[in-house]
Structures are given as structure tokens and as C-alpha cells.
Amino acid sequence: MNPTAMAWRAGWSRGLIELRQSLTNGGDLFNHFFWPVLMLIAVFFLREVSFGQSGFSLGTLVLPSILGMNAAMSMVSMSQQLTADREDGTLLRAKATPNGMVGYLLGKIISVSGSLVVDLAIFLIPGMFIISGLAIGDPGSWLTLSWVLALGLVATLPIGAVLGSVFVSVRSQGLLTLPILGMIAISGIFYPLTVLPEWVQWIAQAFPIYWLGLGMRSALLPDGAVAVEIGESWRHLETIGVLGAWAVLGLLLAPIVLRRMARRESGSSVAERREKALQRIG
């Protein structure tokens, strides 16, 4: 069999194994349920809060936005897992096998994407019973949700791989959390972006989180909800354009950064990081 085909097959198997393990391990299962349940509680209390004269509750507007936020957060998961594997030597072992990096990255893409779909289902299925007014009976809504999610993953996972290559330890990932939380705060996830100053709106629209939230809202909200959006439009072409630009940027940068990072990996560098970790624990 072709070595590249073998690497892809190994990566597919690796991804499915990691996904299955995350669904059967107590700690990972807690992580799968913790944030979706927390967000469901928030949506529950917002379901009776009206947004201005729009006729919609904040809970109705927020639920699809949270789906988009979670999809964007897949880049954080990718970054954290790649950094952790780099720190404990998993990445070095993958590098030592023929086409091992290809199989490793494919496995991560499958496991992170699969975990995201599970998390979204945990949140969305109960949410549809808690929140009324969603356009869930239209097949077109689910088609839109699917392409927004797929394009969002292509836009965010390569960026996550780049970020994971930059950070050298899991502890340093905290430097990534604060900017991401800041982007969530100004991206119209928990309230429409139109209530923020115009200069803040321009900043938010430069990043994927806003467009993933907008795409999910366009999929699950009725047509009347577009009145609270910028320009009173779902802007599907702009969504494709911005997410597509981030996808191209990530796909161009990720191979370069990952190759350079892999070249620097060695047994001595892994041992050095382990020694520093043990010193911190001690």
C-alpha cells in the first residue's frame, strides 16, 4: 500500500480511537457535558428576556450564537492538544515514523471535529425543547448549519494547529485564553453586535467567531430575526468570504509552521520540558 495512504488510514483510525476514548473516560465525559450544560442554564434564564422591540427573546437569539462560538473554540482545543502532545513526546514519536505527522494531524482533526459535534448535540438537542421560535422544521436550516459548521472547522482548525506549534507548554496556553474570551465578548454571541460601537463591530467582523455565530443564527432563526443584524442581512456571501479567507490563511501557514516545529523536536527538547514540568510540580 502507498505510504501516504497508509498514513491517512492510520490517522483515521487514530482519530476514531481518541474520540471513542473521550466518550468512555469519566474526566473527558465531564468536559463534554460541563460547558453545554452551563450554557443551557444560561439560555434557560434568558428565554423570557426580550431584546428591545424585536419580538424575540435573548434566549432565542443566543442559542444559535453559542453553537457558533463552540465551533470557533475548536481551534483552542486543537492548540491545547497539539501543545500537550508536543510536551509529552507524542509528537516526537509521530515524527519518527514514515508520514507519521500526516497521520497524527489527520487523527487530531477527526477527534477534535468529532468531539465538537458531540458537544454541539449535547447543547442543541435539549436547547430545542427549552427555546421556542427556532426554525428547526425547515431542511434548509440544517443544510445551512452543516455548511457553516464545515467551513468554520476548515477556517479554525488549521489556525489552532499553528497556535499549538507556537506554544511550548500547556501552561503557556493561558496566554491564548484571554484574547479568545475578549473576542467572544465583542462578537455578538450573548447580545446582538449592533448594540456595540461601530469601531468594535469592525474589529469583531475581522475574526471567525462573529461569522460563525451569524451563520448559525441564519440557519436556526426565523427570517424576522435578521432585523437585529448589521444591515438587516444574514450576509451569507460575506460569511463564506471571511471564513474562506481564514481557511486559506490557516492552510497556507499550518504546513510551514508544523514542519519547522517538527524539525526542532528532539529527545533532548522533550526531556528538557519534562524536567521543567517536574520542577514546577516539586
Score class of each variant (00 low, 15 high):
residue 41 I to Q: 02
residue 72 A to H: 04
residue 209 I to C: 01
residue 51 F to Y: 15
residue 142 W to H: 04
residue 173 Q to Y: 05
residue 234 W to P: 12
residue 155 A to K: 06
residue 41 I to D: 03
residue 239 T to S: 07
residue 198 E to C: 01
residue 124 L to F: 13
residue 193 L to V: 14
residue 212 L to S: 04
residue 117 V to I: 15
residue 30 F to E: 00
residue 44 F to P: 03
residue 199 W to E: 12
residue 79 S to H: 00
residue 21 Q to S: 10
residue 71 A to R: 01
residue 23 L to C: 15
residue 216 M to V: 01
residue 77 S to N: 02
residue 101 M to P: 03
residue 183 M to S: 07
residue 168 V to R: 15
residue 163 L to Y: 07
residue 198 E to D: 09
residue 77 S to W: 10
residue 164 G to N: 12
residue 65 S to W: 07
residue 232 E to V: 08
residue 272 E to G: 07
residue 29 L to W: 02
residue 152 G to N: 05
residue 130 I to A: 11
residue 133 G to H: 02
residue 267 G to E: 14
residue 84 A to P: 03
residue 27 G to R: 12
residue 178 L to G: 01
residue 32 H to S: 01
residue 183 M to K: 03
residue 26 G to T: 14
residue 36 P to Q: 14
residue 243 L to E: 05
residue 269 S to E: 08
residue 12 W to Y: 09
residue 76 V to D: 03
residue 201 Q to P: 09
residue 63 L to Q: 05
residue 183 M to Q: 10
residue 176 L to C: 07
residue 174 G to C: 00
residue 109 I to N: 06
residue 172 S to N: 14
residue 29 L to C: 12
residue 10 A to K: 09
residue 247 A to C: 08
residue 170 V to S: 13
residue 158 P to G: 04
residue 168 V to Q: 15
residue 188 G to R: 02
residue 82 L to V: 13
residue 163 L to M: 11
residue 96 A to E: 14
residue 45 F to R: 02
residue 121 A to G: 10
residue 164 G to V: 10
residue 272 E to N: 12
residue 64 P to Y: 09
residue 87 E to Y: 12
residue 269 S to W: 14
residue 175 L to D: 01
residue 59 G to R: 00
residue 13 S to W: 11
residue 18 E to W: 03
residue 218 S to N: 13
residue 86 R to G: 11
residue 215 G to M: 01
residue 42 A to F: 15
residue 187 S to P: 10
residue 33 F to T: 01
residue 208 P to A: 12
residue 194 T to V: 08
residue 15 G to V: 01
residue 265 E to I: 07
residue 85 D to I: 05
residue 124 L to I: 08
residue 181 L to D: 11
residue 173 Q to K: 13
residue 55 G to W: 01
residue 168 V to Y: 11
residue 139 P to Y: 03
residue 208 P to T: 10
residue 50 S to I: 11
residue 3 P to S: 08
residue 187 S to T: 07
residue 29 L to F: 06
residue 182 G to I: 08
residue 225 A to D: 05
residue 96 A to T: 09
residue 44 F to K: 00
residue 115 S to Q: 13
residue 168 V to P: 03
residue 94 A to S: 12
residue 234 W to Y: 05
residue 227 A to K: 08
residue 188 G to M: 09
residue 71 A to V: 14
residue 75 M to V: 01
residue 270 V to F: 07
residue 184 I to Q: 06
residue 7 A to V: 04
residue 253 L to F: 06
residue 274 R to F: 13
residue 198 E to Q: 10
residue 42 A to K: 00
residue 150 A to R: 07
residue 175 L to A: 15
residue 204 A to R: 02
residue 1 M to E: 04
residue 60 T to K: 01
residue 223 D to P: 03
residue 155 A to M: 00
residue 281 I to Y: 04
residue 33 F to K: 01
residue 8 W to P: 00
residue 224 G to I: 09
residue 88 D to T: 05
residue 199 W to Y: 15
residue 151 L to S: 13
residue 259 R to Y: 03
residue 274 R to H: 15
residue 169 S to Y: 09
residue 59 G to L: 02
residue 232 E to P: 06
residue 246 W to H: 12
residue 87 E to H: 13
residue 60 T to E: 07
